[in-house]
Amino acid sequence: MTTGAPAQTVHFHQKHYTAVVSGAKVSTVHWREDIHEGPAIFIFDNHPTARPLAGQVTAVETYDLAHLSPLAARQPPGTDMTNFARQLRVNYYPEMPEDAVVQVVVIATGHHGDSSLPTT
């Protein structure tokens, strides 16, 4: 991990705020985003009260969407990955093709609780 590197921005749907802050959500699947290991600012799009959170991207793994397994995506065993891919398209990436290559991004906030950045 590079120290002193500027923090990248990683966007989440607002519904993931509590899970990220609590440490329950430790990964996310993204398509066509240039995410890399290192410092990050987690942004919760359209959340009415959430401030950006300081965190880290601790790992980035690349997979063909068609071969993404529940284990690789950090989903519960038995997750229907066809439905998982469908939900990625419906909720986040409507233009994502069947043969997409996705990133599984592993995250950490450093501690659980309020790790939000001060407002300016």
Score class of each variant (00 low, 15 high):
Gly4Tyr: 09
Ala5Tyr: 07
Pro6Ala: 15
Ala7His: 04
Gln8Thr: 09
Gln8Val: 10
His11Gly: 09
His11Glu: 15
Phe12Gly: 00
Phe12Cys: 04
Phe12Pro: 00
His13Glu: 15
His13Gly: 14
Gln14Lys: 11
Lys15Asn: 14
His16Asn: 09
His16Glu: 06
His16Arg: 03
Tyr17Glu: 12
Tyr17Ile: 01
Thr18Val: 12
Thr18Trp: 13
Ala19Ile: 03
Ala19Pro: 02
Ala19Tyr: 04
Val20Ile: 14
Val21Pro: 00
Ser22Asp: 14
Gly23Val: 05
Ala24His: 15
Ala24Asp: 11
Ala24Pro: 01
Lys25Ser: 05
Lys25Trp: 12
Lys25Phe: 05
Ser27His: 07
Val29Leu: 02
Trp31Val: 07
Arg32Gly: 00
Glu33Tyr: 09
Glu33His: 15
Glu33Arg: 13
Asp34Gly: 07
Asp34Ala: 11
Asp34Arg: 10
Ile35Cys: 05
Ile35Trp: 01
Ile35Glu: 05
Ile35Phe: 04
His36Arg: 10
Glu37Gly: 04
Glu37Trp: 00
Gly38Gln: 08
Gly38Trp: 06
Gly38Pro: 05
Pro39Gln: 13
Pro39Lys: 14
Ala40Asn: 03
Ala40Tyr: 00
Ile41Trp: 03
Ile41Met: 08
Ile43Asn: 06
Phe44Leu: 05
Phe44Trp: 04
Phe44Asn: 01
Phe44Pro: 00
Asp45Cys: 08
Asp45Thr: 12
Asp45Ser: 08
Pro48Gly: 03
Ala50Ile: 06
Ala50Asn: 06
Ala50Val: 09
Pro52Asp: 12
Ala54Asn: 13
Ala54Pro: 00
Ala54Leu: 10
Gly55Glu: 09
Gly55Ile: 03
Val57Lys: 00
Thr58Val: 08
Thr58Gly: 04
Thr58Lys: 06
Thr58Ser: 14
Ala59Met: 13
Val60Cys: 04
Tyr63Trp: 13
Tyr63Ala: 04
Asp64Arg: 14
Leu65Val: 10
Ala66Ile: 13
Ala66Thr: 12
Ala66Gln: 09
Ala66Tyr: 05
His67Val: 06
Ser69Asp: 10
Ser69Met: 08
Ala73Lys: 02
Arg74Met: 11
Gln75Asp: 05
Gln75Pro: 00
Gln75Val: 00
Gln75Lys: 08
Pro76Leu: 07
Pro76Tyr: 02
Pro77Gln: 10
Gly78Ile: 05
Thr79Cys: 03
Thr79Gly: 03
Asp80Ile: 01
Asp80Phe: 02
Met81Asp: 02
Asn83Gln: 08
Phe84Lys: 03
Phe84Ala: 02
Ala85Pro: 03
Arg89Ala: 07
Arg89Cys: 13
Arg89His: 15
Val90Ala: 11
Val90Cys: 02
Val90Asp: 14
Val90Thr: 10
Asn91Gly: 09
Asn91Glu: 14
Tyr92Pro: 01
Pro94Met: 15
Glu95Cys: 04
Glu95Leu: 10
Pro97Asp: 08
Pro97Arg: 07
Glu98Met: 13
Asp99Phe: 09
Ala100Ser: 13
Val102Ile: 13
Gln103Leu: 14
Val104Phe: 02
Ile107Glu: 00
Ile107Arg: 01
Ile107Ser: 01
Ile107Thr: 02
Ala108Ile: 03
Ala108Asp: 12
Thr109His: 07
Gly110Val: 10
His112Asp: 14
His112Pro: 01
Gly113Met: 15
Gly113Pro: 08
Ser115Phe: 07
Ser115Met: 14
Leu117Arg: 11
Pro118Lys: 12
Thr119Trp: 06
